[in-house]
C-alpha cells in the first residue's frame, strides 16, 4: 500500500541520510540543506538506519544500497514494514535494472543514480511530494 502523508511542511522537510561514506553523507547533507530542508540524522549502515528511524522520525530518507552490516534494500524493507508512511529515495551507484525493481519491491519510492547533481535530487524529492502529499 502506498503511503498517504497527511501533513508536511514542503518548504522544510526533515531528512535522514543513510550512506557508509562520510563524504557522501556530507555532500548529501549539504545538498539537502541548500534545498531548504534539514538533516535530522545520519546512519552509516542499514542496521543503524532501522534502529534510528524512530528516534529521528524523518519526513524523508535517502538510502544507499551497498553498505556493510545490512544493505539498503533490506533496511528499506524493514523500515517500510514497520512505518507504512516512510518515504525513501534510494541514492546509489547501482544502476542495474533488477536492483531498481528490488528496491521498489522493498518499498522505495524514488531512485537516484550516483553521481548526481542537486537538481536531480530536488526533482526526485518533489516527485515524491507531488505524488504522496495529500
Amino acid at each position: 500500500m502506498e503511503p498517504q502523508i497527511e501533513s508536511v511542511n514542503i518548504t522544510s522537510l526533515n531528512f535522514m541520510v543513510v550512506d557508509d561514506s562520510a563524504i557522501t553523507t556530507r555532500k548529501m547533507s549539504k545538498m539537502i540543506e541548500d534545498l531548504g530542508h534539514k538533516v535530522v540524522g545520519i546512519a552509516r549502515t542499514g542496521r543503524e538506519a532501522v534502529e534510528k528511524y524512530e528516534e529521528f522520525n524523518p519526513d524523508m530518507v535517502t538510502m544507499d544500497i551497498t553498505m556493510p552490516d545490512m544493505n539498503g534494500i533490506e533496511a528499506t524493507k524493514q523500515i517500510c514494514k514497520k512505518y507504512k508512511d516512510a518515504l525513501i529515495i534510494m541514492v546509489t551507484s547501482h544502476g542495474q535494472e533488477q536492483m531498481v525493481v528490488d528496491a521498489i519491491k522493498a518499498g522505495a519510492l524514488g531512485y537516484v543514480i550516483k553521481p548526481f547533481k542537486e537538481e536531480t535530487l530536488k526533482a526526485s524529492i518533489e516527485r515524491l511530494l507531488n505524488k504522496f502529499w495529500k
Binding site: 561514506s21 551497498t66 546509489t92 551507484s93 547501482h94 544502476g95 542495474q96 535494472e97 543514480i113 550516483k114 553521481p115
Partner: peptide
C-alpha cells in the same frame, strides 16, 4: 563504487 556500480547496469 560509483564506476563499478554504474558499469554493472549493462549486464
Amino acid at each position: 563504487n560509483i564506476i563499478v556500480g554504474n558499469a554493472i547496469s549493462e549486464f
